[in-house]
């Protein structure tokens, strides 16, 4: 019997290896050809940083990069505040009302992004809000609240209700208990959620596409309009940088909470946690 347990599922291992190759092949190709000194996307003729040099001198693109960073930062801040409030409130208000509010917050997660995007576009135009980076931020916050709420609620479930009572017992008003005890204990989760939302919003194309104004446009929107007209080494360079930035953020989101203490990392939250 021990023999049967030890046996590796050969087919599954094969599939996994092929999967990882398939997963990384196109990305690595992009990275590789971003360093090509010719315009070709099929033959690598020599190492060069010329496409990166082009990027650095592309004003419009740099504006878009700054715009995306601003949007991501603002949306992260906004959704952290609102999502945490929601998570704390939902923890206490149970029953039908709490369930309803909880369900409404989760709706953006099960709505195709294009629907959310279209709806946001109609709302902003309907109330006469001029499309700009501000409208992008509003839409992204709405979309990201759910992520923050889910992650924070996951962490809250791990903090015994008794901790809050202990704070009250030791002289905290309800508000102080949240500020001095609950929030600090939530910090790892908040950090993880913040990094996750930042990465998601920074990269998000669909919502930004529907809700942005003309100038400056968030980076993904600008990249999209260039991609539509074809493949170019300059986009390889942007793509490589965006991939690196995202990867860094994700790694930070995974590692930082661990470093800050024994909190659950976002990875655990994504995969449903390990107890």
């Amino acid at each position: 019997m021990a023999r049967r347990v030890e046996r590796k599922p050969v087919v599954a291992v094969g599939v996994t290896i092929v999967f990882f190759a398939w997963l990384y092949l196109p990305i690595l190709a992009v990275a590789l050809f971003s360093l090509n000194d010719k315009k070709s996307l099929s033959s690598f003729s020599g190492f060069s940083l010329r496409w990166y040099d082009d990027l650095v001198h592309n004003e419009a693109l740099l504006d878009s990069l700054v715009a995306s960073l601003q949007v991501a930062a603002a949306a992260t801040l906004g959704s952290l505040v609102l999502g945490t409030m929601l998570a704390l409130g939902l923890e206490r208000i149970r029953g039908r009302r709490g369930n309803l509010i909880g369900a409404v917050t989760l709706l953006p997660l099960v709505t195709p992004e294009i629907v959310t995007g279209v709806a946001a576009l109609l709302l902003f135009t309907g109330i006469g809000l001029k499309l700009s980076l501000t409208t992008v931020v509003l839409a992204e916050i709405t979309f990201s609240i759910a992520y923050v709420t889910v992650i924070v609620r996951g962490r809250l479930a791990g903090i015994a209700l008794e901790v809050e009572e202990a704070a009250r017992d030791l002289g905290c008003t309800p508000f102080q208990a949240v500020r001095l005890v609950i929030l600090p204990m939530l910090l790892p989760a908040l950090l993880g959620a913040g990094l996750l939302v930042f990465a998601l919003v920074f990269d998000d194309f669909v919502l930004a596409f529907f809700t942005t104004g003309v100038d400056p446009q968030p980076l993904p929107v600008r990249v999209y309009s260039s991609i539509r007209f074809g493949v170019s080494p300059a986009i390889n360079a942007i793509g490589t940088l965006m991939l690196l930035a995202s990867a860094l953020l994700i790694v930070a989101a995974l590692v930082l909470p661990r470093l800050l203490g024994r909190g659950t990392s976002s990875l655990d939250l994504i995969t449903g946690g390990r107890r």
């Binding site: 901790v163 202990a166 017992d169 600090p184 204990m185 203490g261």
Partner: peptide, 13 residues
């Protein structure tokens, strides 16, 4: 009045 909780409820941070 002060309480010693069953789970101790220490402030981990």
């Amino acid at each position: 009045v002060n309480t010693v909780f069953q789970s101790y409820a220490l402030f981990e941070h």
